[in-house]
């Protein structure tokens, strides 16, 4: 179990850190439809809060690629930790009952 977990985690990290700077910058399916059909402006300035790393960028890193890589690294580790330890807690709950 350990081996495949480590392999898959490393693959995920590599994707987030090394490949994410090469991701297409084009609008995604929904954005494109919103642009073409003229309702994209309905979202402009409508954010109800300001997220710390908007659009997968880290504000204090000027280099765009490194900024994206770093955001990818933070996100992948964070999602893993929340999900893994969330599952650990659920597992404990299961064994107790």
């Amino acid at each position: 179990m350990k081996k495949i977990t480590i392999i898959m985690f490393l693959i995920s990290l590599s994707i987030a850190v090394f490949l994410s700077p090469f991701a297409s910058q084009l609008p995604d399916g929904l954005e494109k439809v919103a642009e073409d059909k003229g309702f994209i402006e309905k979202a402009e300035g409508k954010e109800v809060f300001q997220a710390p790393l908007p659009d997968y960028t880290v504000s204090f890193i000027k280099n765009e690629s490194i900024s994206t890589s770093f955001a990818g690294l933070i996100g992948t580790v964070l999602v893993f930790l929340i999900s893994y330890f969330g599952a650990v807690v659920l597992k404990k709950w299961n064994t107790r009952s």
Binding site: M1, K2, T5, S12, I15, A23, T76, V77, V79, S83
Partner: peptide, 23 residues
């Protein structure tokens, strides 16, 4: 949830997050 599910749930989430960055 069983012993084997825990790490798989963790890496599945991490993988999906990372892969979603790749437009």
């Amino acid at each position: 949830i069983g012993e084997k599910h825990v790490p798989l749930i963790g890496v599945m989430s991490a993988f999906i997050f990372a892969a979603q960055m790749l437009n």
